[in-house]
Write a protein that binds this DNA or RNA. Structure first.
Lengths: 201, 201
DNA sequence: GACTAATGTGGCAGAGTCTGCCATGTTCGA
DNA sequence: TCGAACATGGCAGACTCTGCCACATTAGTC
């Protein structure tokens, strides 16, 4: 089964991984903005030009191969939607993602720490979520009741809010790593509304 | 009272405004990525170097002088918090911002249309909100009940979610300008949770 | 084993954003 | 009127990213 991949693709994948490792390490040492692509590529033994063949942008070396973007979330979400409310389904879907990420806790906290040192990086991270949102909104939209005129908007709100909760939980966890578990942070984030807005019911 | 400003600052402000106008117009015509700073500055009769004295980055020419960043939201929020729940206070605060923005409806829809044509711009726009969040979170945090360990996280979630609702409402409005009013969109966005998550109570 | 095609890689030039430095002109207050 | 503060412009340079072409390696075929 693996033979079908061919050695070329396997080494290519390995190079992507090595680049990601080297880059993360250098970013931790000297900072993202202070580390030009030149240094990453030479540290990995390739030319700058080749770097841009593996990753379209410098940011991508951090974000491209991350779980939330590589896992098929629509499928997961569809499954949860069959037995949960839209909001709960989003909660569980992103909770599942968090569970998978736990196997790489160390890498994640390193990455989040790097991301939070640079404004441009934070923006790039947000863009990842915008892309994810475009995938999830069409899955949620048909499940919403109420007037069609507002359900399109509410689907957007639900998905973007869910990703915001997810993101906020992770940032908070990365900053207070010793005080709280990832999954607890995610659960607290997703249940904030039911606790904090009694008047709006 | 206005005399204290001095003509220099007044003309400087005028140049900022003119640059913003010229830039928005050019971005509409040729697109953001296809319009180099050279063209904006020459169209406004200044050198590229001087452009970067008025705006630190090319993005800033779109975002820097916008109401949500120039109005003092902390003050507004503090006032609402004295008689509303945190979530409702955030809702009303951003509703007030939306009301002020209505006087520039046309400019806003033009701007949002430009922003939504470029991924990098959308991310930059979100970053404006990240900065706002840093201002609002300390205002909300002391109002939250419950264990201190989770209230810091919940304050972050509430503020980021509020800004997400605000942002989503505006994007939706910009795309369906004829179907919905800004304030209605904002209200729908902010009341999405109370309607859509009965199970989580 | 040799040949061709596909693919990975590197170098080069160039556009575009943004910064530091210095020189020039204009305005303001004394 | 003179010096100080300020706005502007030009220049060089770093950095990201792209298009183009040349070279080498590999894969598949005969």
């Amino acid at each position: 089964m693996d033979e079908s991949i061919g050695i070329r693709e396997r080494t290519r994948g390995a190079m992507r991984g090595e680049l990601a490792d080297v880059a993360l390490r250098l970013f931790e040492e000297r900072g993202y903005d202070e580390t030009p692509v030149d240094e990453i590529s030479t540290a990995a033994g390739i030319s700058p030009r080749t770097f841009y063949r593996y990753f379209g942008t410098k940011e991508d070396v951090l974000f491209a191969d991350l779980p939330p973007t590589s896992v098929d979330l629509s499928e997961l979400l569809t499954e949860h939607l069959s037995r949960l409310s839209p909001w709960e389904a989003l909660h569980q879907t992103l909770r599942n993602v968090s569970e998978r990420m736990q196997t790489q806790r160390g890498r994640w906290s390193r990455l989040l720490r790097v991301v939070n040192t640079s404004d441009s990086l934070r923006a790039g991270h947000l863009e990842q979520h915008m892309n994810l949102a475009q995938t999830l909104i069409p899955v949620i939209a048909p499940q919403l009741e109420g007037p069609a005129s507002s359900s399109a908007l509410r689907a957007r709100v639900l998905v973007h809010t869910a990703l915001t909760c997810f993101d906020t939980a992770f940032s908070h966890w990365a900053e207070h790593e010793s005080d709280i578990e990832i999954l607890d942070a995610v659960d607290i984030a997703f249940t904030t509304f039911s606790d904090a807005t009694p008047e709006t019911r």
